[in-house]
Design a protein around this nucleic acid. Sequence first.
RNA 1: CGGGGUGUAGGUCAUCGGUAGACCGCUGCGUUUGGGACGCAGAUGUAGUGAGUUCAAUUCUCGCCACCCCGACCA
Length: 402
Amino acid sequence: MKYSKLFPKTLKQVPTGVESINHQLLVRAGFIHQEMAGVYTYLPLGWKVIEKISNIVREEMNKIGGQEMLMPVLHPGENWKKTGRFQNFDVLFKLKGAGDKDLVLGPTHEEIIYPLLAEYIKSYKDLPLYLYQIQTKFRNEPRAKAGVLRTREFIMKDLYSFHVNDEDRNEYYKLAREAYIKILRRLEITALVTKASGGTFSDLSEEFQVITPSGEDTIFVCEDCQMAINKEIAQEKCPECGGKLKEEKAIEVGNIFPLKPAYAEAFDLSFVSETGKKKLVSAGCYGLGVSRVMGAIVEVFHDDKGIIWPESVAPFKVHIVGLDGEGDKVYKLLLAEGVEVLFDDRVDVSAGVKFADADLIGVPYRVVVSKKTKDQLEVKKRNEKETKFVTLEELLEVINPI
RNA sequence: CGGGGUGUAGGUCAUCGGUAGACCGCUGCGUUUGGGACGCAGAUGUAGUGAGUUCAAUUCUCGCCACCCCGACCA
C-alpha cells in the first residue's frame, strides 16, 4: 500500500473530548472514526487490525472443533420473551418491525442458536457440537466510553458448545479456556483468567482480564498464588490459598460461561440418549470482544509518539519511509516477497512528518530509504531505539527470522 | 439514569450585544527536504437547534439536541 493512496490521512490534533489513549491514538492515526457515542467506523487501517485479530481467533476456534457460521443481527422479540430476557436484559436494543412486531438487535445469540439447534439435534449422536461466529453485536449501554473499549455496537466472537451432559461440557470449557489463553498469547497481551459472576447466563463465569490503569473493571489478584477474582464477587482473602489480595484495574476482553439449563428448557433443546430417554442439552458460551481487544492492545502498547502494534495484529509488517524520492524499488521487492508493506511515497512532505506518522501508526519495522543510505537500508523496530543498516537480503532475514 | 462540562471553518481554539478571526489542514506557485520546513497568493462559516429579551443576538435567558467527564449500570 502506498501511503499517498491510503484513506484517510493522520491527524495532528485530537478532536475535542477524546480522552482515552486508545481513542486518541486510533483516531489520530486513522484507524477509526466516531459516528456517535459508542459507534465507530473501522477505517482501512483499523479494519486490517480487526481482521488480523479475527483470524487469530478463528484459527484457534477451528482448532478446538469450532465451525464458523453467521447468525442474524435482527432477532424476533418473541425468542427473547421466551427466556425472560426481553425484560431482564438491561442493555437490549428493541425496535418494531413490520406489523408492529417486536424485534431485537442481537447482543448475544442464545435466543437464536438454541431454537436453531432444537430443530436439528435429535440424538446423542448429533452431539457434541461447537458453533461460532464473528459478528457485530449491539448493547444499549447507558454510557459508552473509552473509545472502542465500551461501545454500543462492537465486534465479538461468540462460540457456543452443546453436549450430552455437564461433564462433557466442563471438559470442553477447559479446552476453550486453553484456546483463549493461546489467542491472547498470540496477540501478545497478558490476560488473567478471573473468576466472575455469570449475569443472566450462568451462576459463575471466567473473564480474561488485561491489567492496565485505564481498565474499567476492578479485579483482585492474590499476591501469593496469582488467582484473580472480579470485585463483584470477591471476598476479603484469596479463596484458593487465603493469601492477600491486591486491587488492579483491568479490561475484560473475554468471558466464558457454563450456561445454565434455563435456555435449553425455554427452547426445549433436548435429545434422545443412548438409553432412549429424552434429555436436555448442556451448553457453554464463550465470548471475545474483537474490537475491544484492538483498544486494549493500544492501551497496553503505546508511547508518547503513537501506537506500538504487536507483529501479529499490525496492519502492515514494514513501513518504508521514502526520502529523496527513493523507496519504490525496495517497496516492489518486498511486495514480491509477500511482505505486507506500507510505503510512504509522499514527495510533498518533510522527513519529519513521515517519521512522526510512522511512529503514530506503529507498524513494527520502519525502513528508511534515502540517497544518504545509498545501497543500505536503515531498519528500526518500533519498540526499540537503535537502528541498523542492512542490505535487502539482510532485511528479509530481520523481518522473517527462520 | 443523577451530577458536571462543552458546542464558532475539515481539525484545535480565540472573539464579542453592532452578523467573525488565528493556528493546523486544504488549493496554486516558488524555495526546501533525516524528526511534524518557509515565503507569496487563495478557498472554506446558516456561530448545534428552537424560542425569548433587544433597535440589533454567535454573544444575554430558557427549552431541546449532540458530544465528553464523574457516578450508577456493565452478558
